[in-house]
């Protein structure tokens, strides 16, 4: 059963997203809403990872070797200024989108494995990830015209 690999992928993606939220929030602390919301969402991501951990451990026992090129590198540090903010939020958006699709995949697998506990975790967390995506989209929509057209 390969479910463990996708659980591992999602677990790591959530941890990385949590760290990235923290980094981006700190890098743009002069945008207080970005700072405070990123802090909140970082905690949320870490909570997701914690909830996944026992399942990842359990399924790892029955898993074959990890396939190649499982994990993706979507974040390599923050930037500065209005366009930097936009671009950093875009990184977060892509990372959250990866988590979002992983929740779907893991949720499908949970059905197949008849694992109600895992399904419960997926249902609770995927909604929060979806709100994260919406917040990032909202904030980027607000920032884009000023950063791309107005700022000198």
């Amino acid at each position: 059963m390969h479910l463990a690999h996708y659980l591992g992928l999602l677990h790591k993606a959530q941890e990385r997203l949590g760290d990235a939220f923290t980094e981006v929030g700190k890098a743009h602390a002069d945008e207080p809403d970005v700072f405070h919301t990123c802090e909140k969402l970082a905690t949320q991501c870490r909570g997701h990872a914690e909830k996944l951990a026992p399942f990842a451990r359990r399924y790892a026992e029955e898993a074959p070797a990890e396939p190649d090129r499982l994990h993706s590198e979507l974040f390599s540090g923050t930037r500065t200024g209005p366009i930097g903010l936009l671009r950093d939020l875009q990184d977060l958006y892509l990372m959250a989108a990866e988590c979002d699709i992983c929740w779907t995949v893991v949720g499908q697998a949970a059905y197949g494995a008849r694992d109600e506990d895992l399904l419960g975790v997926v249902k609770a967390c995927e909604q929060e990830t979806s709100i994260q995506l919406k917040w990032l989209r909202t904030r980027m929509k607000q920032a884009a015209p000023q950063a791309l057209v107005v700022a000198g």
């Binding site: 919301t37 909140k40 969402l41 709100i131 994260q132 919406k134 917040w135 989209r137 909202t138």
Partner: peptide, 10 residues
């Protein structure tokens, strides 16, 4: 909106 983040709903 989402009350916790302010994310706009579509």
């Amino acid at each position: 909106h989402d009350l916790a983040t302010g994310a706009e709903l579509l």
